[in-house]
């Protein structure tokens, strides 16, 4: 059972309220998404830590029901 793009977006925003989230369904199968997340929470953090923040927002869905989520994290310009 895959996840809906909206569900992913909502979970990320719940944990990172200021985040701008853009989700692209890469394969049209609801199982391979690219998420671009822009948040000031990422400022001063390594890429690994930035991605870990997003994975924590997804509360263990990552790697489980959500097989493939490519992440692009950025700090606000």
């Amino acid at each position: 059972m895959a996840m809906e793009a909206k569900e992913i977006e909502d979970m990320i925003i719940k944990a990172l309220p200021d985040a701008q989230v853009t989700i692209t369904d890469m394969a049209g199968d609801g199982d391979h998404y690219m998420a671009r997340v822009v948040s000031k929470e990422f400022i001063g953090k390594s890429r690994v830590s930035q991605h870990q923040l997003v994975y924590k927002a997804l509360k263990g869905k990552m790697g489980g029901v959500l097989h493939a989520l490519s992440l692009q994290t950025e700090t606000p310009k």
């Binding site: 890429r47 690994v48 991605h51 870990q52 994975y55 990552m62 790697g63 489980g64 692009q72």
Partner: peptide, 23 residues
């Protein structure tokens, strides 16, 4: 504390998964 595979380590340090390595 990383939920997916693959994972790259260089000199004992976790560098990242496929996305980070590509970036």
């Amino acid at each position: 504390d990383w939920p997916t595979i693959p994972q790259v380590y260089i000199k004992g340090e976790f560098i990242g998964g496929a996305d980070i390595l590509r970036d």
